[in-house]
Design a protein around this nucleic acid. Structure first.
Lengths: 204, 204
DNA sequence: TCCCACCATTAACACCGTTAACTGTAATTA
DNA sequence: TAATTACAGTTAACGGTGTTAATGGTGGGA
């Protein structure tokens, strides 16, 4: 019987994926604050402890949910960058994409940034562990650096500038997703205003 | 015995204030995620349920902690506005103040914005209920409006512009307080970069 | 003196994340 | 084939959470 062990492993990974899928679903429906291991267990019709055979703990599970999100975002970033040769315009499009992305996945977004310290570990481990989230940030950093070099943005410490740009986007996303069902100004208008203002303010 | 009832009320309010003070202290020490009614009860050496005689629930208690914070911020805003006649410069100073304020009260800041929906109620109730938080926002809105009228900022919907400016500040504060103990770029430098860029980008 | 209002308490409910100990089953080895 | 081992999945439990209902005690007013 060649590959019996492998079939076991395969089955295990499949079940793991099922749990993850159920978690993602439950998560999107109930929101971060209402998500619990016990509810997830009920949904997959297993005891709560079963989940712990496939994920170290709740944070570990959430981590993989978040990585899925980042993978999709990184894909979009790469596509934009390939289609748009002008770095300034690419930056503008990517910033827009970031906001659109955050706003359309509010629960995952909250999880990544607002679960007290833990999902992506300490900041130190974030910068060393190879995650898709980190790769996304690096791609963004490179683009900022490129924009400075080719004269689209004025000379500045590119780490600092990346942080500032990202923070501003992050702020808009955050304020939007935390004030859902509120008569807010039009989202794309705000995104335009923020991004264009920022780019103009930092133009070379 | 004139004022016996009043003395009772006074005593009650004093105890309430003591609970609030203990809560504030516990809160700053343990952080939002570690704060609990039971720990607070232990600290004031009463049973957990006693707190419910003075506060409707946990959110109600946190609400008053947050309001304290906003009161201090609003005071600073008013002072800046009175000392600085130029609205553009006043705006710049107030934006800086906002960041400084948020960064130096991270746990309260988190509470205000990131406790799932509740501390300040639904967005709708936020806009109707007279809170210090709302008054602060109104003061900020007025200043933006003034800046547009006197030509410091380019013409735009002032509600929208206020939201964008605030979101950007909010984002920087948030990214800083959620990445504590991280080798971040200098905070005031980032604040300068963000604020100056934004003001320049939206200058008339 | 009796009663009532009120403060504070204990006990309990319904959750939560997580660990330890146990059960049954299927594969491997003697 | 029989014994053993590996392992998935379970139940029970621990220690924690916010909150409510019922209860005890105490002091002021009638």
């Amino acid at each position: 019987m060649v590959g019996l062990k492998e079939r076991r492993i395969q089955h295990k990974e499949q079940f793991r994926a099922e749990i993850l899928a159920a978690a993602r679903e439950l998560f999107s429906q109930e929101g971060y604050s209402q998500f619990s291991m016990r509810k997830l267990a009920a949904r997959i019709e297993h005891s709560p402890t079963t989940i712990y055979l496939y994920f170290r703990d709740k944070d570990d599970l959430l981590f993989y949910i978040c990585e899925e999100l980042y993978a999709a975002f990184l894909k979009a970033v790469v596509e934009i960058r390939q289609a748009e040769p002008d770095p300034g315009e690419a930056l503008r499009l990517i910033l827009h994409q970031y906001i659109r992305f955050g706003v359309s996945h509010p629960e995952q977004y909250k999880t990544v940034f607002f679960t007290s310290p833990v999902v992506y570990g300490s900041p130190d481990s974030f910068m060393t562990k190879d995650t898709i989230a980190l790769r996304s940030y690096r791609a963004f950093l490179d683009l900022i650096s490129e924009c400075i070099q080719c004269g689209v943005l004025q000379k500045n410490d590119c780490n600092m500038l990346a942080m500032v740009f990202w923070s501003a986007m992050h702020g808009l996303v955050t304020s939007i997703i935390f004030t859902r069902d509120f008569p807010m100004p039009d989202i794309t208008l705000m995104a335009d205003t923020l991004i264009d203002g920022l780019l103009k303010g930092h133009a070379a």
